[in-house]
Each structure stands twice: as C-alpha cells, then as structure tokens.
Design a binder for these strands. Structure first.
Lengths: 130, 130
DNA sequence: GCTTGAGCTTCCAGTCACTGGAAGGACTAT
DNA sequence: ATAGTCCTTCCAGTGACTGGAAGCTCAAGC
C-alpha cells in the first residue's frame, strides 16, 4: 500500500503518517521508486495510534502503549496504569474547564448585551487585582 | 515599577510580560537604564490579561477584549458575543473530554490490571480498523 | 511518444502561548 | 571592590501536527 491508501484506511492524513515515521512510531519499507510501502502491520499500528490519539493519549503514551501492545509478555497492570494516569489528567482538564465555564456563563447571564457600554464581563476582568 | 514588581502584583511571570509586550498587548515606557517602567495602567492591563487568560480566552480574544475595555463607546453586545463564542468552544472541549473519559473509564474498569498480558484496553485500541 | 494530472518525495516554516537558557549590563549592599 | 540579584536581548524548544514549495513518479488519454 502507498501512503494515500493507508491514510484513507487508517483515517489519518498522509502528513501525520509521515510525521509518525519521523518520530519513530512506525517504520514502513520503501519501494524501489522511493515511495513508502505499507504492510498490514503498519496499517494496524496506524489505526491503533489513531484510536489512542482520539482517546487523548499523548504521543509518548502512544509509544508506550504500542510497545506494550507488541510485547506479548506485558502485564496488563502496566497498560492499566498508563490509562489511569491519563484519566486523572482528563479529569483535571474537565474540572478546569467546568470552572471556567461556570464563571463565564454567570458573567454572560449578567451582561445585557445591548448598545450601552456598561458590561459586567469587562468589570470582572478589570477587577482582577488582589 | 520594574518588571519584577509588576510580575508579582499581576501574578504573571516576567517572561510572559515581555512576551505580551512583544506581541503588542502592552507598551510600557523605558527608563534611562533600559529597564521597562510600568505604570498603574500597565499593571491594570496585565491583571486584566491574566484574568482573561485564566478564563481561557485566546490571546487574540484578549486583544479584542482589551480594545473593548479601553473603548468607552463600546456596546456591551460586542463583549457578550466574544464571551458567548468562547463559551461554545469551552462546551465543545468539555463534551469531547467527557466522551474520552467515558470510554477510557469503561476500559479501565474492564482491565484486571494484573501480571497477565490480556488487556481489554489494548484490545480496544487494536480493534480500531472497522 | 507526449502531455496532463494525481500522487509521491523532502525540506522548511508556521501554529499557540509561552518557557528555558545563555551572555551580558545595571543596581544594591557590604 | 565584590557578590548577588535584577534587568536586558536573543535564540531555541515545547506538542502534534499542518501548509506550502520544489521536484520526482506513475497512470491514462491522445
């Protein structure tokens, strides 16, 4: 398979696939013409990466997960730990966004949003000292 | 005020304040020795920026909000619109994270996390191809 | 055989909002 | 005079791509 076909099937842009090769996540073969030649195994890895990225794992986490995936001697505890640490990060981000959301939604409610200049949103932002 | 004091009082690192000057958000004066000389107005702006950034507004949004803040002729509707668009983005991010969280939490529950290699998390990731 | 267009290659630069570090000048206290 | 802290500028790196330029390869049609 060339990069276009594998991109289609893995659901990743060709640019991203080249980038993943650059950083050593995959190692496709090369045809005589210099084109990358992807095998099923590469496609499978790329799909794995796409799914892991969609779950928000960092590239370094993906590297770890891929290594665990290829290691038939792995202990599932190792995988679970990576996933649990990621879940903690996700929860932290959600909490931060919820907090922003609450403040912002409150300010928006207070603001009349008309042609007059007085605005509780700007008042809040400008009252940030202390 | 020098940059150290204003950094302390605005709650922003000096590096960030220099960066904000670089991109034209603030324009502190200069003392004869080449040091930046911040006035109350600059401090106020920096605190405004810190608060807006803490609410997740992008730098470009901050630029807009700061301009509206300084424009006594503004209509509060303009401010409200910027804030509402930002709220939509926050909601989208929260939804995305909640979706990731749900999938990940489910997979983590399923995984025994012991010394054996079989792992529903890796199985899910590797089953990404249709 | 030639042309056209799509697909592939590499390389460089840009994104966003900083952050770290180096090299060196200015100020303060002893 | 010295030491230590604060300030300056400039350059490079972060994460994970993404856009674009310049050029090679391939398949189809005339």
């Amino acid at each position: 398979m060339n990069i276009g076909e594998v991109a289609e099937r893995a659901g990743l842009p060709p640019k991203t696939i080249r980038y993943y090769e650059d950083i050593g996540l995959i190692r496709p073969m090369r045809s005589a013409n210099g084109y990358r030649e992807f095998r099923d195994r590469d496609l499978h890895k790329l799909a794995f990466l796409g799914r892991a990225r969609a779950l928000g794992f960092s590239i370094e986490d993906c590297r770890t997960l891929l290594a665990l995936y290829e290691d038939t001697e792995r202990e599932s505890a190792q995988v679970k730990q990576v996933a649990q640490e990621h879940l903690v990060q996700i929860d932290a981000k959600i909490a931060q966004l919820e907090s922003m959301r609450a403040t912002l939604a409150h300010l928006i409610e207070e603001c009349r949003g008309d042609h007059r200049p007085d605005c509780p949103i700007l008042e809040d932002l400008s009252a940030a000292l202390q």
